[in-house]
């Protein structure tokens, strides 16, 4: 009897251990970032699919997720998907580069030279208070509805956050670190390269990321105004042909490539700012 009892408890203990292991595994699964992050979208998507199938949402207003997916796949097979994504990405990229280059040049001048600040900053600040979309008609008038007006438009959007962050980054460099450089006899250019630039890098990268975000916003505006290709054009097309699936497909594609581009910048940020002493969540 006693022997049996012993066996029984050992079996129980074994089971308990297994249960614990399982529980641990389960909790691991539920806290894994990918799983936790996709939990809500999956639930919402399934709900949406079911409700659409039950025709709670009329299909001419809100088609089912599968229909939208199908639209994207069809576009992919036709080959138009790549052209649309390609042209939109090209516009954002070109505008982003243009806006950033101008912002870096002006921002560094304003940051480094007091007189440049007095010369440029009031005007730039005045221009900043103009809602950037107000430029659209003027740019179209000046440059037509071709690529140049769109890229300029996006560049204007990218310019301001990058410029502002560069200036505040440079002005915010710790005087104490600059003094260290001065003690070692660095001249102005060496000071800029060895101390001011690395110290203002975090702020610059913040500017780049918010600039890129605005770039994606402005490409939609630019393409809505008049384009024959691009994701923004798909939005107009969907509206005119009463096909919400095209509109939603375009929105989803915007979300995906916008996220990817931001992710790339974020990776660069983490790479180049690993020295920062910041809170790790």
């Amino acid at each position: 009897m006693a022997k049996n009892q012993g066996e029984l408890t050992s079996v129980l203990v074994g089971r308990n251990a297994m249960r614990k292991k399982k529980a641990k595994f389960k909790s691991y699964i539920f806290t894994h970032p990918v799983i936790l992050g996709s939990l809500l979208p999956v639930v919402l998507l399934s709900l949406w699919e079911i409700l659409s199938r039950m025709e709670v949402f009329p299909s001419y207003q809100l088609p089912a997720p599968t229909v939208i997916l199908q639209t994207i796949i069809e576009m992919g097979q036709e080959g138009t998907l790549v052209t649309h994504i390609g042209i939109t990405t090209y516009r954002v990229f070109a505008g982003f580069i243009l806006g950033t280059v101008v912002a870096v040049v002006l921002g560094s001048l304003v940051g480094f030279y007091k007189n440049a600040e007095k010369l440029f900053d009031p005007m730039i600040q005045a221009f900043r208070s103009i809602p950037s979309l107000a430029w659209v008609p003027l740019f179209i008038l000046w440059m037509g509805i071709g690529e140049s007006s769109k890229i300029t438009m996006i560049a204007v959007g990218v310019f301001f956050p990058v410029y502002l962050n560069i200036v505040s980054g440079i002005l915010g460099v710790d005087r104490k670190l600059i003094e260290v450089g001065k003690m070692y006899g660095l001249n102005t250019i060496q000071l800029i390269i060895r101390i001011i630039l690395p110290a203002s890098l975090p702020s610059f990268l913040v500017g780049l990321r918010s600039g890129l975000g605005l770039g994606w916003m402005f490409v939609v505006a630019a393409e809505l105004m008049g384009a024959s290709q691009g994701l923004g054009y798909l939005l107009v097309l969907g509206q005119n042909t009463l096909s919400p699936e095209t509109i939603i497909a375009s929105i989803i594609l915007f979300a995906i490539i916008g996220k990817i581009s931001d992710w790339v910048l974020k990776k660069i940020e983490i790479r180049s700012l690993h020295w920062q002493d910041r809170l790790v969540k």
């Binding site: 104490k176 003094e179 260290v180 690395p198 110290a199 890098l201 020295w275 002493d277």
Partner: peptide, 14 residues
Amino acid sequence: TGFIFQEPRLLPWL
């Protein structure tokens, strides 16, 4: 001239 400050003043990126 060398200067040792009251605080370390290290360059955080190096």
